[in-house]
Design a protein around this nucleic acid. Sequence first.
DNA 1: GATGAATGAGAATTCATTCAT
DNA 2: CATGAATGAATTCTCATTCAT
Lengths: 202, 202, 202, 202
Amino acid sequence: MSKARQQKHSHEIRNRILKAAARIISDVGVEALSVRSIAREMDYSAGIIYHYFSSKDEIIESVLRDRYNEIIQAITPSDTAMPADEAIQTSLTSYIENALRMPSEYNSIMQSASQKVLAFTSILAKGSQKIRPALAHLAADIEKGIISGLFRPIDAELAAQAIISAVFGLIARLNIEKGVTEEQKASLINCQVELIIRGLKA
Amino acid sequence: MSKARQQKHSHEIRNRILKAAARIISDVGVEALSVRSIAREMDYSAGIIYHYFSSKDEIIESVLRDRYNEIIQAITPSDTAMPADEAIQTSLTSYIENALRMPSEYNSIMQSASQKVLAFTSILAKGSQKIRPALAHLAADIEKGIISGLFRPIDAELAAQAIISAVFGLIARLNIEKGVTEEQKASLINCQVELIIRGLKA
Amino acid sequence: MSKARQQKHSHEIRNRILKAAARIISDVGVEALSVRSIAREMDYSAGIIYHYFSSKDEIIESVLRDRYNEIIQAITPSDTAMPADEAIQTSLTSYIENALRMPSEYNSIMQSASQKVLAFTSILAKGSQKIRPALAHLAADIEKGIISGLFRPIDAELAAQAIISAVFGLIARLNIEKGVTEEQKASLINCQVELIIRGLKA
Amino acid sequence: MSKARQQKHSHEIRNRILKAAARIISDVGVEALSVRSIAREMDYSAGIIYHYFSSKDEIIESVLRDRYNEIIQAITPSDTAMPADEAIQTSLTSYIENALRMPSEYNSIMQSASQKVLAFTSILAKGSQKIRPALAHLAADIEKGIISGLFRPIDAELAAQAIISAVFGLIARLNIEKGVTEEQKASLINCQVELIIRGLKA
DNA sequence: GATGAATGAGAATTCATTCAT
DNA sequence: CATGAATGAATTCTCATTCAT
């Protein structure tokens, strides 16, 4: 095999491992993920996994990072023409929808205290917007609202952090409490998003 | 030993077990709590724990329930004279302070999907205020604000649910992200609480 | 308390322990009998049991001995007027009925290889009839049959041993195989008893 | 290692596990068999056993089934020329001999009330000969005897069930009662087999 | 006489990881 | 590259027994 083909093959296997792990995490949660379960899912032996990853944690981290990126890509720079309040509402709503689509993963990601995971999930430190695009986008929208006079003057990054945390809280609880009706879910989401946006208003 | 003294002794051991469990949960989290670790912490044999509790889960549940009660007791019926916005600010702030004082426990409690734990932590279902005093108190304060004209008309229970979720989200992230300065913490809390209260205003 | 009363009391407690143990063995089998389960059943502490018995095995042995005696008392010296075949049929049938009434105990007794239990259950050694009344009675009936010309000449003790073993085998299997209908049970018993008696006939 | 060799190796280990388990069962009985004891016997770690078997029960069942098959293969369709009484005597005698060669296993098998084991040991239900070859063979021999006029008319399956139970009873007791001399053993076996065959005769 | 605390050994099972082949 | 054998430590829980009080 040529070096290129080998690398491609190697890459493929890595992906299969990640896919298998993702499926398991999605189905039964990170806690129930075992290296053997990945192997079983792939129809491979458990040992081989250590050829591609140095530990189970590395796999988990990789899966969670991917999912995280999928989820936060809902928060993107808004159409410049769109008023800030609408832009934020749109962003938050689709972020929430994304997150609710992968409950197990979202909670695993956002509740993880692992250094590796925090490396891409931490948002609260001052200046975090410099390394967290989603935070930066949200802060930018807030800033836009302030400039346009729609929102009251406020530290935009701080507000963005508080808002993302709030939204995270609602999603996390919705993912944990199983018995909530779809209708109630929608009401809660609306209520919280409205609360946030009104809270920003001048 | 007299019966009384024996009972006292028994009660003490139970407490020591709970304390040890609480310490471990606080140090390394519920996931890492094992019956053996409790025994080790107490310098006892593992078996004896089953003299006092019928299962590990019973211990966990007991610890978490206790901590939960400590934390939510911050949200109590407010002074009738106090304006609703102030009352809510006070409640939320001391709730947050309580929760930040036991980071590991708070997160364990609020992130637990166990039926036993959800039995006292679930808040999102419609009508939850009937069984959740803290939720009821918060909703009552919101209602008071609406009646007094301070707040806009809104479904008080729904708003209370959205607010508690929001606050939970911030606390949970603060507990997870270790490197946040105290100053930044305070700013975030202020910012979120203000956002919420302004969001309620008429 | 007078010495006599004390002894009486002590005797009563012993009996309560045995009763409790008997009930548990009957309900869930010897394997599932634990000292603690006895204590629970009696509403006493586990420790006290060791005041009255030196070990769990001693209790088991005592219970099994009692039950054994109840069961084999079906095999008693027959009415001298009754023909040997009838006498044996009567004996065996009521022995079987007794045994089927306490399935768990009977199997525990007869399947026990413990020295203590074998001390009263062993029947196969040559000369066992000298120490095993039931065996002696059965052998006597066989002898009677031989003398009366009803049965062929045969070593009566040996035949008695073979017969009791045969009957034990049927009972044991009936106790183990749960799905056998009452009708089938009766047929099997009849069939075996008839086989035995015809086998003895001249 | 080649695939073939590996498979062979794997097969060998499985066999070693089964052998070790069989040895322990033979020495101390099924009740005392533990996964750890197997591992100890093999000088292996306990965990590895779960590489080859999914549970302790699977091992037990496998051992018992194997032994059972070895034992009952004594009861096979008889030479058509041989008279029924001789055929049955031969069958039963070699069945007994087989069983006495593995006392502990035989008793474990026949005294087991586990569903898994009963799946191949139950014989008493009406119609069992359809699924139990040994029973069918014995019933066939009885039938042959009836047709040839050697035996009295009798429900052949029922008789076969009663007979196997009888023989089981004798074997079980012989296995339990250790002190019986070889001579006495032989006498008892002869006596019982003769009793049975005479019991069948016309 | 009676309690209940306490131990220590035992049970089955699972798992991440390593490594010879 | 890939396998599967193997380990060792971990898990919860049960139990007979002892003993101070």
